[in-house]
């Protein structure tokens, strides 16, 4: 009997405490993120990517050690913080994923079409994600530093900004519908204000990330793809111009701020 009473009292206390806890903590993921920072499972993907970088693979049985991410062949430290960037050899603005895809194609003979037409978390596209984890991990604590001087970078940035405000699809949404005011939320999820430099860095610099809710590692390509899904547009093509343009806009806007790479998300 006595035990029962105690149990009831505890239950009552829990009921009273819950709404307060929810209001102050459930809606704030930062504390949880800090707890996880030490054991961010994204590190498992970093390890896989690091091994992939030096493993001879593909029809040409080559490693990626000749891959130039913008700072010279095999220079990985700090490379992600300066991407997207203009690459003279392809005469294109490339983000990390499209650059890796180019290297895999050119050096290893792994056809880009296989990645573009594949699915996230599967096959060669999953390999790209692991490589992304490794490369961004080598820019930990570095400020975002994207060089917008080249005319093609300027144009990509301008197109990204226009795209950010481009309303379309079944629900009339643009990126700006959710990401142009400070302190707003969708349900319990805080939304960065990407029209500000700080907010753009928050958005750009906290992906790629490990998502605790589904135990998956998501690259920025994956993040943007799911943004468009929820925006109710048609499906963006992996590595397509729209993804590069938005990435260039976010990274350029966030210039100078520190990135949290790789991040950890609900």
């Amino acid at each position: 009997m006595r035990q029962k009473i105690i149990a009831a009292a505890i239950a009552a206390a829990a009921v009273v405490a819950a709404p307060q806890a929810l209001a102050s903590e459930e809606l704030n993921f930062d504390a949880y993120r800090q707890m996880l920072a030490d054991g961010n499972p994204a590190e498992l993907f970093e390890m896989e990517g690091e091994e992939l970088w030096t493993t001879a693979r593909g029809p040409k049985n080559a490693t990626l050690e000749k891959c130039d991410l913008g700072l010279g062949a095999n220079v990985v430290v700090g490379a992600a913080a300066q991407m997207p960037r203009y690459f003279a050899d392809t005469d294109k603005v490339q983000d990390l994923e499209s650059r890796l895809m180019h290297c895999m194609d050119a050096l290893q003979g792994i056809p880009s079409a296989e990645i573009i037409n594949g699915s996230f978390l599967k096959g060669e596209r999953a390999k790209v994600a692991a490589l992304v984890a490794y490369v961004v991990g080598q820019s930990k604590g570095k400020p975002i530093q994207v060089d917008l001087a080249h005319p093609k970078m300027k144009e990509m940035y301008a197109m990204g900004e226009k795209t950010f405000y481009y309303r379309t699809g079944a629900m009339d949404f643009a990126c700006s519908s959710c990401h142009s005011q400070d302190g707003k939320r969708i349900r319990a999820t805080s939304l960065p204000n990407i029209t500000t430099s700080k907010g753009a860095a928050e958005g750009w610099g906290s992906w790629p990330a490990y998502r605790v809710s589904n135990s998956q590692f998501w690259t920025m390509q994956h993040r943007l793809w799911d943004c468009f899904r929820q925006q109710r547009t048609a499906e963006p093509v992996f590595g397509s111009d729209v993804t590069i343009a938005l990435s260039t806009f976010m990274a350029g806007k966030g210039n100078g701020h520190e990135a949290v790479w790789p991040g950890v998300k609900r």
Binding site: M159, T163, P236, V242
Partner: peptide, 22 residues
């Protein structure tokens, strides 16, 4: 940009390319 909003996308299931036209 209007061209890119079409060329960078593909139809998938009920989400057709009509959605890319404003």
């Amino acid at each position: 940009v209007a061209e890119m909003m079409k060329s960078s996308f593909k139809a998938n299931g009920i989400a057709s390319l009509d959605r890319q036209v404003q």
